[in-house]
Amino acid sequence: MLNKTIRSRITDSWMLTALVIILFLPLIIGLALFLKSIPLFHISSLPCLLFSEDWAPNAGEFGFWPFIYSSLYVTALSFVFSAPLCLLAAIYLTEFASKRLIQIMHPVIDILAGIPSVIYGMWGILVIVPLAGEILAPFFNIKSSGYSVLAGGIVLAVMCIPYMLNMLIESFKTVPYGLKEAAFSLGATHWETIKHVLLRKSRPGILSAFGLGLAKAFGETLAVMMVVGNVIQITGNPFKAAYPLPALIANNYGEMLSIPLYDSALMFAALILLIVVLLINLIFRYFIVSSHAVKI
């Protein structure tokens, strides 16, 4: 009997420890990255680091604005491409399409969400970069190699589609059928029901799908890095190259230890990514949690 209690105690504490380790993981990661980036704060203030445009690691100048700007630009562009398309497609799949189509599409979307980003990147190089450089850019009379913000935005959009679509479909499915029936019985057309009942009822779900899609796009590394050109500049022209934060980290880890403060700078970049993505996640997932709480 004693044996049983002791054994239980041991497994209990093992289970609890495992859970606690995982729950504190974001804090530990944040702390580790923060400690590594402290030396950077000795030479410059936080606003200066974030908004200065001077990037010269050899001279000890670390201004992250070009990278932050590039990240924001590429992410925004991908959002503009993917969000409306996903919303419309999700409405079609859940409301208009035959049961068979959604039965086929569900696993397909799942599988596509699991395809590694390097594959999307390769597809970007094979298809999107030539499209941007040889077809779209000459159309607007711009010279471009194709490795550009536009290519990055398109590849990111495509990567985020399965992810967003999945969440949108899930959230549309949770709208109770009775609500729609009530709208129909009041004489609303199918589209009116979608507009006033479905979209309204799943607003928190739509918002969080969009938010989480944004967060995913903001932190995506390899696929973007392969097509975005990686040139440090601030440009409004989507046919020019950019240099997002994740690409900065991934491209320079080799030299990181040979230039003073460079490793701090890269860890600081990772810290920015962590904080932004974690905040977006916490905020938008809260929408989902709180909307579940008041479900009818």
Partner: peptide
């Protein structure tokens, strides 16, 4: 239970490059 799930879901969203940088520091 809900809070734990909420935190775990948010962990799922952390970009892998951040894990990479953390792994490197470690």
């Amino acid at each position: 239970q809900n809070t734990v799930r909420y935190i775990l879901d948010s962990l799922w969203g952390i970009p892998s490059i951040v894990y990479g940088a953390f792994g490197f520091t470690l």
